[in-house]
Nucleic acid binder design. Sequence first.
DNA 1: CTTATACTAAACTATTTGGTTGACTATTCC
DNA 2: GGAATAGTCAACCAAATAGTTTAGTATAAG
Lengths: 110, 110
Amino acid sequence: MVESSEAGDLVFRALADPTRRRMIERLSQRECTVGELAEPLDMSLAGASKHVGVLEQAGILVREKRGRERVCILRPGGLIAMRDWVARYSAFWDARLESLDRALREDGDE
Amino acid sequence: MVESSEAGDLVFRALADPTRRRMIERLSQRECTVGELAEPLDMSLAGASKHVGVLEQAGILVREKRGRERVCILRPGGLIAMRDWVARYSAFWDARLESLDRALREDGDE
DNA sequence: CTTATACTAAACTATTTGGTTGACTATTCC
DNA sequence: GGAATAGTCAACCAAATAGTTTAGTATAAG
């Protein structure tokens, strides 16, 4: 792999894992402690903690110490790199969707 | 890992690699053969071909055989799963961005 | 027909990743 | 103070990933 060191790269890599996407889903409803995130996941607390660490390093959430608990809070804007990237290619799609016949040559079957 | 088998999961995983994102970037300008995609990447043709395979399986592009070349064509709509996912949390951000003082408690430094 | 080109497939390797357990710290509760 | 709770850290393991090389197929060109 090529190391890339781009900031957005951490976001893309963080989101590649379905478990972490479930965590984000959950956190978009309400703040959760690490334990609350781990509970529905059939996973050890330490495992969940590592996932939270990945999300934190990607700038997607922050961990806030409250007593002996760590409350995870989604950072609005943490996914901006990805939104921008997607927006960029949305423009591409919109342009191409006007000439569907060519681009969708073999697209009808899936 | 939990197998997830969700369709969108392939898209997220495909986009996790910076090399594949560069390929998409390139393909958004013009169609390319596998060889053309490999050339600027300092990577063997076989390596590039594997990346193309991942993108194809995720539904992001199609490979079209033309003579002895395979032309890669971005599928408009191939990234819809991701766009939808992002749109969903964009709504979340917009809601939260109105109460910045709480959510951005330690957000000023990056 | 023969050779070069464009690519894929298979086997292999090294690194990364997702997960575990066990030990440790910090906090709360009795 | 002592025991339970919440979490992190470090070491470890298995599986996935990104890359290679070598061999093989299909098409193009001489």
